[in-house]
């Protein structure tokens, strides 16, 4: 069976420390119309995995092993030009820190419009209308197309990234913590927008998040990462309902409750290490 995206045996190391495995033999796949959530420790390799799929790893990092196939094509074998065609058109990406990927000297309207011009040839009034429509979909008044990134709030920047990433209706969306700066009402609006794309366009989604509320609401499949390894993966019901790995159990124990009754308690890593973590 051909997956929408399959990652096989992906290992990432710093160029100058080839034995330090930031991502260690990671494998999983994404299916059309389904959402896979990647959760796990801060620093466990979630963003590097996503960046590596997009071919955007920094040159200080090295993909030591692994194969990434998108719709059956090995992405490493594509030319730079072919990869550019896929990026933004077939695969949309929402980066974890919006300011690192928005250009500070271009208006947000221009930046949302760019993929539409490059990939779909939209120009003039048709382009303007489409940009306005995308802004509306993410809850930003269309006249803000004239604003520059530093004139927007944190959550508005995040939504500009979201608008850019879905502009060309990609077959797959990689979203790295896409709603961290959004209040829950706007977050609900964005998640429902993404869900619509999933249902109407059969878009597959790789969603990285720390928010187990979001995982419970949108995931079909869950992958748990810990120190570069995948320690557990399965259906959302299994991973949240019947976690097997001690790290997953410990992490779920830390989820704060809405009533504020459960005391805050971080993971006791000493205990976790004894409890056999490979």
């Amino acid at each position: 069976m051909v997956h929408l995206l399959s990652i096989e045996n992906l290992t990432i190391t710093p160029v100058n420390a080839p034995n330090r495995k930031l991502v260690n033999r990671v494998s999983f796949s994404i299916e059309p119309g389904k959402t896979t959530c990647v959760v796990g420790e801060s620093g466990s390799g979630k963003s590097l995995t996503a960046l590596s799929v997009m071919g955007l790893l920094s040159d200080q990092l090295n993909r030591a092993s692994g194969k990434v196939e998108f719709q059956g094509r090995d992405l490493a074998k594509l030319s730079a030009d072919e990869m550019r065609q896929i990026r933004g058109r077939q695969i949309g990406m929402i980066f974890q820190e919006p300011m690192t990927s928005l250009n500070p000297v271009l208006t947000i309207g221009y930046q949302i419009g760019e993929p539409l011009t490059v990939h779909l040839g939209l120009k003039g009034d048709a382009l303007k209308a489409k940009v306005a429509n995308l802004l509306e979909q993410v809850g930003i008044p269309p006249h803000r197309a004239n604003s520059y990134p530093d004139e927007l709030s944190g959550g508005q920047r995040q939504r500009v990234m979201i608008a850019m990433s879905i502009a060309c209706q990609p077959a797959m969306l990689i979203a790295d913590e896409p709603t961290t700066a959004l209040d829950v009402t706007v977050q609900a609006q964005i998640l429902s927008l993404l869900n619509d794309l999933k249902q109407t366009m059969n878009m597959g989604m790789l969603l990285i998040t720390h928010d187990f509320g979001v995982v419970a609401d949108v995931a079909d499949h869950v992958v748990v990462m810990f120190r570069g390894d995948i320690v557990e993966s399965g259906s959302v019901a299994d991973v949240l309902g019947k976690p097997k790995h001690p790290y997953t159990k410990a992490l779920l124990d830390c989820v704060p409750d809405a009533e504020g009754r459960k005391p805050l308690k971080p993971i006791d890593y000493a205990w976790l290490n004894d409890e056999k973590v490979s």
């Binding site: 959760v39 420790e41 801060s42 944190g154 961290t180 992490l251 830390c254 704060p256 805050l264 308690k265």
Partner: peptide, 18 residues
């Protein structure tokens, strides 16, 4: 503190809040 723990996993989040 402007969204101080929004990018942290729930364990580190608890650690920082404590």
């Amino acid at each position: 503190c402007d969204e101080p723990v929004s990018a942290l996993d729930v364990s580190i989040q608890a650690q920082i809040l404590l």
